[in-house]
Design a protein around this nucleic acid. Structure first.
Lengths: 236, 236
DNA sequence: ACAAAAGTGTTGGTGCTACACCCATGG
DNA sequence: CCATGGGTGTAGCACCAACACTTTTGT
């Protein structure tokens, strides 16, 4: 039997318009030297008391990215945020309300400048490595976004989105150590970043710290964008 | 206004069940030292004569991966094929029949052992770099899958899925050169792959070739799987 | 003065790049 | 014997990992 093809027999597809699409946002932050994720308490009976990602149905005339951004903005008040689509989850019974297929996004925000809209205990930051027993298949979604982030952060300078505009090398290292779950050598780490020549020395030091203050830097995104990417050799 | 949240107010979502989900398959093959993609001629009026990817609606009780696999199998007859979800495309008017959101997959098949079901000119292999003017947003989908493949092939041994079980180092190098669109040094390429110690020398040579026959190898997937992955340093 | 974290160089090893000649086979 | 592609080694360079002591500041 030849499979019908939507791109051919589209007069027949009305029958199939019975699914819903949602987006789920894995909103990462970095605080207290830990990678955090913003979760909301589910009040579905099926998942009473469990935590879930921030998500919503995609509206009929709304783009997927728009929907994800709408959720992010309505919850955090933030704009201009790094966001990336990761994976689409479509297990038949993943949602109790029916066939709801969800597109997962992650985004990277700076927790410090983020004032949550509703400062309730319905919406909280959780350390990624401590999260468990999430509602729906959200644990899988979180994991896949976390894996993507781990991967991304070593090949693109996206980690800076989790830090304040001004940061010390120590904070930057703590960020990488938290995300990748590794210990790095301080001297090698500094050498690496300073030799890339993409950090701008702000001639300014940390304040209100109870030891020798560290030098502050910002990342030079313009310079990075201009630089041509080298060929990345086969490596597995 | 607070956004409604599907994970909370699901009694209201019936209203939204008006979209269709499809999957589109970017089926890559390698032949004649070129990366190919399997396309079908669209017979929608809107796209008369243009080429499109192989896709279909996801059935109500069907997983996304299942749907993609069904399409692949029904068109190529192949099973046990490498397949990976890449991205979901949801532009509001991307399909003339209504709101159809599509999940893009790519897969890697060995063209030689692949006998197309219908040997018609409706279904043909095209050199990836020559494809243009595709139906729908399929050009974008193809591009995103191709970019993903380029990326994947340098960090995971997926390229072998495009080759016969037995292959020469020359074929392997041609494959990488075609996918990455670069020229590689032959000696360095051999050194690299042989030193990884993941190719099994089959003690067998090419046949029916009008010059010195090359040694044949296979890839040792078991050994690769057992090997622990080294830490992949920050590099951008 | 002490505690705490910032800052700094060198060495050895590994892996990448660039490069040219002889070899085996078929015709 | 000629044409075609197969097969091989070395040297320089860049990058990475390992490693310990001095400096600055706050208390």
């Amino acid at each position: 039997m030849q499979a019908k093809n939507i791109n051919v027999h589209y007069t027949e597809i009305q029958h199939y318009f019975k699914m819903a699409i949602s987006v789920d946002c894995v909103i990462f932050g970095f605080d207290d030297d830990e990678l955090k994720v913003l979760l909301i308490k589910s009040d579905l009976n099926e998942f009473k008391g469990q935590w879930s990602l921030l998500g919503d149905i995609v509206r009929p005339e709304e783009e997927l990215d728009e929907a994800a951004y709408r959720i992010l903005k309505s919850r955090t008040g933030l704009d201009q945020v790094y966001m990336e689509q990761v994976h689409t989850f479509g297990a038949v019974h993943r949602h109790p309300a029916g066939r709801v297929i969800t597109v997962a996004y992650y985004s990277l925000v700076n927790i410090e400048q983020n004032i949550l809209r509703k400062h309730s205990n319905e919406l909280q930051w959780h350390a990624v490595k401590d999260v468990k027993d999430m509602a729906f298949d959200h644990q899988d979604i979180l994991l896949s976004c976390y894996e993507r982030l781990k991967h991304k952060v070593i090949e693109q300078p996206v980690g800076f989105n989790l830090l304040p505009k001004k940061f010390s090398l120590r904070e930057l290292q703590n960020l990488y150590e938290a995300i990748l779950d590794v210990k790095l050598d301080r001297r090698n780490f500094r050498k690496k970043f300073l030799s890339m020549d993409l950090l701008v020395d702000l001639n300014e030091d940390e304040k209100d710290v109870k030891h020798r203050p560290a030098r502050l830097y910002k990342f030079n995104f313009e310079k990075f964008d201009q630089r041509k990417r080298r060929y990345f050799g086969i490596g597995f």
